[in-house]
């Protein structure tokens, strides 16, 4: 059901943009929607981050995945149980860029006995890391279209990515990889029973949308061959804040507008979805805090000073007689007289 809804939604987006192109709404498709999308993305993203940041972190709760810093001769695991800001940054770096926690993943099976078996399972990690890095490379490659002159890192990326010179224009490996990896991520959602059971439309939709973006991009580049000069003109115009609609995109311009519309859809959807994990991963208190809570006091802004324990005095009032019977020292003696220090 949720899969079907997502599929219909993505097809819907394609259909809408195709029809808009047919009736010649090029200014809407090429200028108004992209600008709106970027504004929604930037504004929404910022709003979500600020909204999270407005909720304080009342307690220092890192999940410690290694030995704490304690006695000098016990080897401290600086990455998994960081105790300084620098060590936390190293932990976060590995989380954000290499998905270290996901790398630990295991798969559990129950067999006769019963016996539980744990085996290393790196597929999700591999799928995740390939997807994210590929996506990043593709986004960075697009800088060729965004600014003039083309930044140096783009040339580098292009030459590495286009190492296999199969086609004209140059074939980029990432184009194939992203289709494969998104397909993998989609299939595992459908095939692995546990993952299928928890999946929502909000899980299928972004995968299908990204797949559609990749496929339209591939069609546009290798098969329908939109005039790249026209594309550059349009995109440069957007970035230079002097938008133009070029008339030299060619007969297959529709595929470019669909691609652009889908990218705009992703930008609009992004801040309101789980895709915000991109910003959230930096803010998770179980990962971005040092394990030094006994060394440095963490402040909770809403800590209530009026919460007091049941006092010793009240306790002694309740139990004075029995306390005396076992010889416990008292603040006040049974007959009510102050008793000196024992």
């Amino acid at each position: 059901m949720s899969m079907l809804v997502s599929l219909i939604a993505v097809f819907g987006l394609v259909a809408v943009s195709y029809m808009m192109e047919l009736v010649g709404l090029h200014t809407v498709l090429g200028i108004i929607i992209p600008y709106t999308a970027v504004l929604v993305f930037l504004g929404g993203f910022t709003y979500r981050i600020i909204d999270w940041a407005r909720s304080p972190v009342p307690f220092k709760i890192p999940t410690t995945c290694g030995q704490q810093e304690s006695l000098s001769w016990i080897k401290h695991n600086k990455l998994e149980s960081p105790s300084t800001t620098g060590q936390v940054m190293a932990r976060m770096f590995l989380e954000v860029f290499f998905f270290r926690s996901l790398f630990r993943n295991t798969k559990t099976d129950a067999t006769e006995g019963p016996r539980l078996l744990y085996t290393s399972d790196k597929f999700l990690w591999l799928g995740g890391i390939v997807f994210h890095w590929t996506f990043l490379v593709i986004v960075l490659r697009h800088f060729r279209l965004f600014v003039e002159p083309v930044p140096g890192f783009v040339h580098l990326l292009e030459s590495v990515d286009g190492f296999i010179q199969l086609t004209l224009p140059t074939f980029y490996m990432t184009d194939m990889v992203i289709v494969l990896v998104v397909t993998y991520l989609f299939i595992r959602r459908v095939v692995i029973p546990q993952v299928k059971y928890i999946s929502l439309a909000a899980d299928f939709f972004p995968l299908l949308l990204i797949l559609a973006i990749a496929l339209t991009g591939i069609l546009m580049r290798y098969i329908l061959k939109v005039n790249i000069v026209g594309v550059k003109e349009l995109v440069h115009g957007l970035f230079a804040l002097s938008p133009v609609i070029p008339d030299n995109l060619g007969s297959t311009a529709y595929i470019f507008y669909i691609h652009l519309f889908l990218v705009s859809s992703l930008l609009v959807y992004f801040p309101f979805s789980k895709l915000m994990h991109m910003g959230g991963v930096f803010m998770s208190p179980t990962r971005n805090l040092p394990n030094d809570s006994r060394k440095h006091r963490h402040i909770n802004p809403w800590n209530d000073p009026n919460i007091k324990p049941h006092s010793y005095e009240a306790y002694e009032d309740d139990f004075r007689k029995v306390m005396k019977s076992v010889g416990l020292p008292l603040e006040k003696d049974v007959d009510g007289e102050e008793e000196g220090e024992k």
């Binding site: 999270w52 996901l102 692995i192 546990q194 928890i198 789980k274 803010m283 998770s284």
Partner: peptide
């Protein structure tokens, strides 16, 4: 509680349901 605990608010929002935790 969403206003008092960033952990709670964040963990309501960012789960991608990847399933890594499922059998843990």
């Amino acid at each position: 509680r969403l206003k008092k605990f960033r952990s709670f608010k964040l963990y309501m929002d960012i789960c991608v349901r990847c399933g890594a935790c499922a059998d843990k």
